[in-house]
Computed example of a mutant assay.
Amino acid sequence: MDKSHWRLFKQGVVACIPTLLGYWAIGFACGAIGAVSGFTILQISCLSTFVYAGSAQFLFYSMASTGAGLVQIALGVLFINMRYLLINTYMAQYFSHANRLEKLVGGFLMTDETFGVASQYARTHDNVLPFSWLLGLNITAWLSWIVATLVGSIFAASLPDWLKDSLSFSLVGMFIGLLLLGWYASQTKKFDIVVIIVAMAIVTFSHGIIAANPSSIIATLIAATIGMFMLLKSGSNKI
């Protein structure tokens, strides 16, 4: 890596720093919930490394602990991660200069947080997104998530069984609290409200018709898709 690429890489690392608190807080809770749900530290670390999606990992632990089958879990994770198709489709306009490997690595490591940072950077730099800069951003976020979930899983695994049972509900409450804090700091509150209302409406009207797990997955998929289209349309209007 020459000096110019290294400089861009370091700038990407610095750009990721404001998002790290969210990664560490939610990652810690995610790792702890995984340990409380009966997964080993190695299994949790592998999920964080290869799945690398907070919402999908929470769903994975929830469905697995309730006895859902492998196919159900795989479909649930697939549905909840389909929004990344929309995210990477939008980001493709900034990658016309990149080769296939760079596009693959950039898309695989993209998250909701890095999407926001990267798209803002591209809009303020003539719609150009250097791969070295994006790699620095994504690698920093990815490693932070892995470390945060690892620390959370080690912490929860070291607790006595009686405390783990009571901790499971507390961690869910902690996750809800983090989501609320994230919402108050969000710059897209209007879109967030629409997503919440749509998801709640789908779950409410499907109650008694569709089982709870599929209903939640369908509600998440539809609401997230609507919210992402709204966000993409808003972003394209600003370019």
Rank of each mutant, 00 (worst) to 15 (best):
1 M>T: 11
2 D>F: 07
2 D>E: 10
5 H>N: 15
8 L>V: 05
8 L>C: 08
8 L>G: 05
9 F>M: 05
11 Q>M: 10
19 T>P: 08
20 L>I: 08
25 A>F: 00
26 I>L: 03
29 A>W: 00
32 A>C: 03
35 A>V: 10
37 S>W: 00
43 Q>W: 00
43 Q>K: 06
48 S>K: 12
65 S>P: 03
69 G>Y: 06
69 G>T: 08
73 I>E: 13
75 L>N: 12
77 V>E: 13
77 V>I: 14
78 L>S: 15
79 F>G: 13
79 F>I: 06
83 R>S: 07
88 N>R: 02
89 T>A: 15
89 T>W: 12
91 M>D: 00
92 A>Q: 12
93 Q>M: 02
95 F>L: 15
99 N>P: 05
99 N>Y: 01
99 N>I: 05
100 R>V: 09
100 R>S: 11
106 G>V: 14
112 D>N: 03
112 D>R: 06
114 T>N: 08
114 T>D: 06
115 F>T: 02
116 G>N: 11
118 A>M: 02
120 Q>F: 10
121 Y>D: 02
122 A>S: 01
122 A>D: 03
126 D>S: 13
127 N>H: 07
132 S>V: 00
135 L>M: 05
135 L>D: 01
143 L>W: 14
144 S>P: 07
147 V>Y: 00
148 A>K: 02
152 G>S: 10
155 F>T: 11
162 W>P: 14
163 L>R: 06
164 K>D: 09
164 K>N: 11
168 S>W: 03
168 S>T: 11
171 L>S: 07
172 V>K: 15
176 I>L: 14
177 G>P: 06
177 G>W: 02
178 L>V: 06
183 W>K: 10
185 A>W: 00
185 A>I: 00
193 I>V: 13
197 I>P: 07
198 V>D: 05
200 M>Q: 08
201 A>H: 01
201 A>D: 02
201 A>E: 01
203 V>S: 09
207 H>F: 13
208 G>S: 04
209 I>C: 11
210 I>L: 11
211 A>K: 15
212 A>P: 04
215 S>H: 12
216 S>T: 08
217 I>H: 03
220 T>E: 07
222 I>L: 14
227 G>L: 07
228 M>V: 09
231 L>A: 14
233 K>N: 15
235 G>N: 15
236 S>E: 14
238 K>A: 12
239 I>C: 12
